[in-house]
Computed example of a mutant assay.
Amino acid sequence: MQRNFQKRQPKLEGRGLLEAVNSEGPHSDWLGMPDYYIHTLTVAGDEFKYLSADSKLDVGVGDTVVFRYQEVGKTEKKEKRIDKRSLGIYIDPSQYMQNN
């Protein structure tokens, strides 16, 4: 069986002002699994979940963030889950060199 990656859905992208962060954890699903935290981020009015081994994030409320995410679940209200290592601060190219 051969996979055709051209038919795969492209990753969804999000960007906006980080309005709130609510962290829960640590969680451990089974013995030997490392602890993880569930961060619920409110970005431009939408809620996104981000699973991380760190209790604190590198982004803060008031930052403009950018990320890739997937919609998970089979119900009407799908959970929006941010991909691992894709969350970061948005840098406006026109303002990049003006801070020096």
Rank of each mutant, 00 (worst) to 15 (best):
Q2E: 15
R3P: 11
N4P: 10
N4L: 10
Q6D: 12
K7Y: 14
Q9K: 10
P10N: 05
K11S: 13
K11P: 09
L12G: 00
R15T: 08
L18C: 10
E19S: 10
V21I: 04
N22V: 12
S23Q: 01
H27K: 15
S28E: 15
S28Q: 15
D29M: 03
D29V: 07
L31D: 15
G32Y: 02
M33A: 05
P34M: 08
Y36C: 08
Y37I: 07
Y37L: 06
Y37R: 06
Y37T: 03
L41S: 02
L41W: 09
T42S: 05
A44N: 03
G45D: 11
G45M: 01
D46C: 09
D46H: 11
E47W: 08
F48S: 01
K49D: 02
K49H: 02
Y50V: 11
L51A: 03
L51Y: 02
A53G: 12
A53L: 13
A53F: 13
D54M: 03
S55Q: 13
K56I: 05
V59K: 11
V59Q: 03
G60L: 01
G60E: 09
G60A: 10
V61P: 04
V61S: 08
G62T: 07
D63S: 03
Y69I: 06
Y69P: 03
Y69S: 00
E71T: 02
E71Y: 04
E71K: 04
V72F: 09
G73D: 06
T75Q: 12
E76G: 15
E76C: 10
K78A: 14
R81E: 13
R81D: 04
R81Y: 10
I82W: 00
D83S: 04
R85M: 10
R85L: 00
S86F: 08
L87K: 06
G88H: 01
G88A: 07
Y90C: 09
Y90P: 02
I91K: 12
P93S: 07
S94H: 12
S94P: 04
Q95I: 11
M97A: 13
Q98F: 11
N99T: 09
